[in-house]
Design a protein around this nucleic acid. Sequence first.
RNA 1: CGGGGUGUGGCGCAGCUUGGUAGCGCACUCGCUUUGGGAGCGAGGGGCCGCAGGUUCAAAUCCUGUCACCCCGACCA
Length: 470
Amino acid sequence: MARPPVLTPQGQDFPRWYQDVIAKAELADNGPVRGTMVIRPWGYAIWERMQREVDDRIKATGAQNAYFPLFIPQSYLQREAEHIEGFSPELAVVTHAGGKELEEPVVVRPTSETIVNSFFAKWVQSYRDLPLLVNNWSNVVRWELRPRIFLRTTEFLWQEGHTCHATQADAGAYARRILDEVYADFMESVLAIPVLRGRKTRRERFAGAVNTLTCEAMMRDGKALQMGTSHELGQNFAKSFGVAFSTADGEQSYVWQTSWGVSTRMVGGLIMCHGDDSGLRIPPRLAPTQAVVMVVKEGDGVSEAAAQLVSELSAAGVRCELDARTDTAFGRRAIDRELKGIPVRIEVGPREVAEGNAMLVRRISATKERKSLAGLTAAVTEALVQDQDLLFAEALARREGSTADVGSFGEAVEAAASGWARITWAALGHEGEAAIAEQGVSVRCLLRADGGVPERDDEPELFAIVGRSY
RNA sequence: CGGGGUGUGGCGCAGCUUGGUAGCGCACUCGCUUUGGGAGCGAGGGGCCGCAGGUUCAAAUCCUGUCACCCCGACCA
């Protein structure tokens, strides 16, 4: 009966556990080119759910989707000095095509600020064209030295938003709105991942931005994951690309811009924030399949009862599927669903049908209860709501319990071995930031004392959250 | 780029020291028995031993070179 565990236990080797879950839950495979990945149907279904939820929120802020090209003239990248300096080490450049060498090499987009702005320059003429709010769902390529599937891949999928505003205040407010209403809301209410919203230090800022806002989450091993960023670009790109407009007074002015993105990295965050030694745990609001009705064993009326449950659950709005593959051992199927993180399992067999009930097995609360067939749909919908909250509460408690208030660099580094440290920015500063970097520890973000997002780096009484990161 | 390690069926590994023509577990196929927490038994299929040279009657094994990948340090969603 005692079998070796399906997955390497987290406590034994976390990175190994991560690789194991991805393989066993059939999320993805490594591609043939280093750093590339094949996202398998279950992994992609999760991504599609993320896309849907994020896309709805983006549109609610007034942005519209558009598409910009994969290939960008190399010269475009060079127009913004900091930007090219930041990205040049990781660019993939096409020098040959159509059987001959190209006159001007073409880069595969690492991000689209340059090509987007070259068109914004044409589209924006008047203050009446502002704000211009555009979002692009795409793939991008950044040649990675040390790839890690979903977390840091050479090619990844994401959305990148690009906006133009008439004033700095408007741009700043919009960058903040994306952070709050799109990213943090999605991560907390759908992914059930608590995030700290903060401001990046100069060192951690996006290449070409004047301010980078971030959502930082803690993984189960205590490391931080940057789940999403929203940047204020100031007028840097506007000046490089000539994105200017006539104000109501007839003056020429450069636009103020933002850009912001979340990527398939969130899938990695989902895995590492919620997964346990039995596999994935997908929050109900995200789960592509929320409930699976399993025929445990054939018998009188079993298939009919199972089919009936599926149709009742579907009618109640539960994303639901039937598993009647009784040619495969029950234990195998049950474990497979656990690995994939499906929130609720309903087990029906001859015993249950005879008694007029079914077994409700919950992945997140790890409970198993007998329920009458008549009350099952209500019990499932209630369980889905409760377990969404339970998962969030658990992650929040873990983060709180693994964050230490410290007063020195040394203590911060020590705390970062197992979690995060909170230290005043005055005590740390840029020198401290450089010092802890030697130990592989970085400032994840700056916060106000009340947890609010700072407007400036030099506000008094700021706190730095420091830790190891992916 | 610096340090450490590994390349053997789809996956994970043994075999190498002391050369003799490749094996184990999982997975896969077929059959029977099973089916309430990774089923059992039996029978099968599948390997350029990373690549290229060399030594030898004979190389997965010894020698030389080379490539790839993994882990740890400087950058990134």
